[in-house]
Design a protein around this nucleic acid. Structure first.
Lengths: 217, 217, 217, 217
DNA sequence: GATGAATGAGTCTTCATTCAT
DNA sequence: GATGAATGAAGACTCATTCAT
C-alpha cells in the first residue's frame, strides 16, 4: 500500500502541500517529492495541476458525504440529525485539518479558475441539511416559514466559519462538542433567554422613542 | 478627481480584476489597463501585487466597519442591532459584488501566502457581533451560556455563506431583506415550531424504537 | 510473419507516423501503438528515435536504389534510361507516399541533427543519374559540356519538387506518365520551339530597344 | 540600428540559429542570446517559436520576390528572364546561406506542424516561373505542349537541389554563374548533342532488339 | 511623477529512455 | 524477449518588477 497506490499517495501529498501553501503557491515538484514519486509520474495519474485539486474534492467529499449520510441515518429526530451533522462535520475537520483547509480555502475559489467545474458535491452536501429541515417541517417540529435554501447555507456557513477558525489558527479554544452543541442550539432554539419574546422586535429606532425601553449597558 | 486619484483608480480597478479572475489569475497589466495607468505606475503607489490586495482589504473593510458601527448605533435593542447588522451586511454585498467576492474568496486565504498579514480588520468585524451578543446578555435578553467566540463566527458564517451564494451564482433567489430576516430569526428564535421544547432532545438512537416512528422528546 | 517481424512492423509504423506528424512531432509511444508493440520493445530493435529514421532511410533507399538500377539496366539508350528513371521515381513516390514524404521532408534535414550521418544512399542515388549522363556523353548522344555534378542535381531536383507537390497537396493534377515525359523532355530537348536557336541569347537589356518589342537573337 | 530594431535583430538571430540547428533543435534561449535580448523580449515581438519561423518566411520571401520581379523585368526575352532568374536565385542563396538553408530545409516541412499555414509566398515565387514560360509560349519561343505546372516545379526544383548542395556541403564546386548557365541550358536546349534527334526515343527495350544500337560503355 | 519596453527567474508539462517484472 | 510504469531532464512561455527616458 505504501509502495503501490501512487494515486492515493499523490492525493495525500497534494492535500498536504496545497493546505500548506495554497494551490497557486504549490509546486508540482513539491507534491512529487512529498509523494516520493518523480514529477512526471504525477501526470500518469492526473491531467494537470487543477485536476489534482478537483479529484481531491470529488473523492474526499464523496467519502464525507457517504459518512455523514450514514451517521444521520442513525437518528430519527431531525433535531438529533442536525446536531449530529454538526458534530460529525466538526469532528472530520478536526481529524483532517489539511483536507478541511483545502476544501474551505482553495476549493471555494475553484469556480474562479475552473469555469467548467460545477461544484456538485458541495451542493449535495448542502442538500443533506435541507432534507433534515424539510423532514422536521413535515413532522411539524420546525417552523414552516423557514426557507430551506437559506437555512442550509446558514447552518453550513456557521459550521464552516467555525472550522476555518480552527483550521487557520491551529489553536482550538472550544471543543468540537461544545461548538457543535452551541451551533445546533442557536439554530434550534435561538439565543433568546425568553423565547416568548419576539426575536425581531418591531423596528424601533433608538432616538424615535422618548421613553427609552431600556438603557443599553 | 477621476483623473488625479491614481491610488483610488488602481484600487477600484484591482477590485474589479481580482474579483473577475481571482488574485493569482489576475495580471498587473490588466489592472493597469483597467485603471488607465501604465504598468509601472502601479509600483509608485503599491509595493507589489500583494500589497494591492492588502490595501483593498484594509481600506474597504475599514469603511465597512465604520458604516456598520454607525448603523447599529442607531438601535438600542440588541435584537434590532443583530437584524440590522445582517441587513446591512447583505445589502453591502449586494451593492458591491466585486468587493464582496474579493473579500470572501481571496482575502480569506491571504494568510496562506502572506504569512505576516494578520487579519485584524476581519477580527474587528467579528468583534462587533460579539459585542452585540454581550450587550444582550448583560441586558438579560440573550442566554448567558451562549459563547461569544462561537456565536460571532456562526452568525457571520451564516451571512457569509449566503453572500457567497449570491456572489458566485449571480442570480438571487431571495431578497436581501428575506435573507436578513430569516437569518436573524434562526439565531434569535431558532427554528423550532414550539420553542418550549428543547432544541436538542436527549440522544435517542433511531433503532431504539421499533414501532412508533419517533416520539419527539 | 506479421506477428513475428517486429523490426519490420516498427519500421512500417514509423514511416506512417513520421510521415503524418514529422519526425519531431512524432512520439515513440505513437509508433509503438501503431506497431502493436510496447514502447520499450522499440528499444530492443533500435538504439533511439533517430536510429529508426536512419534505418528507414538506409533500408528503404537501398531497396529503391536496387529497384532503379535493375529498371534502367533494361534499356540501352541513355535517353530511355533517363526517361525510365523519372518514370520509376515518380511511380514509387505515388505508390508509397508516406515513405516518399519522409525521405523528402524529414531525411533531407537529417544532417542538421545527426552530425555524424552522411547521406551515402542519397549520393548513390544521384550517382545513378550522373552515370546515365556520362554514358550518353561517351556515346556522343549528350553534349560534352554538361556537368554531371550539376546535371544530376538538376534532374533529381526537378523530379523531387514535382513529387513534393504530389505528396503534400494530396491531389494529383498530372499523371505520373505525363510528369515523367515532360521532365525528361525538358532535360533532353529543352523547351525551345526551334532548338536551332540558342537557348540563351546574347544578353540584351530590355531598355535597349525602344520600338520593336524584341528581336529574339 | 544595432541598439534598436529588436524585431530585426531577433529575426536575424533566428535565421542563424535555425539554420545552425534546425527549427526543433533550436532553443529560444539561444536565439535570445544571439540577438542580445532577454528570452522574454522575444515574446514581445513574436507570439511563439513558430511565429518567428513564419515571419522569417513571409518577410524574407517577400523581399526576394520583389527583388526577383524587379530583376527579370529588365529583360524582354523570356530566355533571358529564365537565365537571370536562375542567376539571381543562386546568387541570393550564395549571399545568405543561412536564410537559404532555412527556407529550404525548415520551411518545407512547416506544413507538417503548422496546419493552418498556407505557403502563399512560395506559390507566388513559383508563379513567376510559370509566367515566364507562358510569355515565351505566347511569343512562340517555347513549345506549346510544355505544362506550366510541371515546368515551374521542375525548374525551381533543379535550382533548389543545386542550392541545397551548396548550402549543406559548405563547399562550392561550381560557380553561381556556371550553375545558372548549365541549368538554364538544360531547360532551354536540353542536353542532346544533336537536338534533331528525338529526346525520348520510341520505347525500345534493351533485349528486344537483336542488332544492338550501341553497346553501352 | 509617469511610462512601458525590457528583463529573467520560475514552473508546468512533455516524452525519450530505462528497467524491474 | 516483451512489457509499460516510472523517471527526470529539458524548454517554451509567463509575468511581476525594474528603470531609462
Amino acid at each position: 500500500m505504501k509502495v503501490a497506490d501512487k494515486h492515493g499517495r499523490i492525493i495525500q501529498a497534494a492535500i498536504k502541500v496545497f493546505a500548506r501553501n495554497g494551490f497557486f503557491n504549490s509546486r508540482i515538484a513539491e507534491i512529487a517529492k512529498e509523494a516520493n514519486v518523480a514529477d512526471g509520474t504525477i501526470y500518469l495519474y492526473f491531467n494537470n495541476k487543477y485536476d489534482i485539486l478537483i479529484t481531491i474534492f470529488e473523492e474526499e467529499m464523496g467519502k464525507i458525504i457517504a459518512r455523514v449520510k450514514q451517521e444521520i441515518a442513525k437518528y430519527d429526530d431531525p433535531r438529533e440529525k442536525l446536531y449530529h451533522f454538526a458534530l460529525l462535520h466538526l469532528s472530520l475537520v478536526e481529524k483532517d485539518k489539511d483536507l478541511a483547509e483545502l476544501i474551505q480555502v482553495e476549493l471555494r475559489q475553484s469556480s474562479k479558475f475552473i469555469k467548467e467545474y460545477k461544484n456538485r458535491k458541495f451542493a449535495e452536501y448542502l442538500h443533506i441539511i435541507a432534507q433534515i429541515l424539510k423532514e422536521g417541517q413535515q413532522q411539524g417540529i420546525f417552523r414552516q416559514d423557514v426557507k430551506p435554501g437559506i437555512f442550509k447555507r446558514s447552518f453550513f456557513g456557521a459550521m464552516d466559519e467555525m472550522s476555518r477558525f480552527w483550521v487557520l489558527s491551529s489553536r482550538k479554544k472550544y471543543s468540537v462538542k461544545t461548538a457543535a452543541t452551541q451551533i445546533s442550539q442557536y439554530f434550534l432554539n435561538g439565543i433568546l433567554e425568553d423565547p416568548q419574546k419576539p426575536g425581531k422586535p418591531a423596528s424601533k429606532k433608538k432616538k424615535s422613542t422618548g421613553k427609552k425601553k431600556r438603557s443599553v449597558k
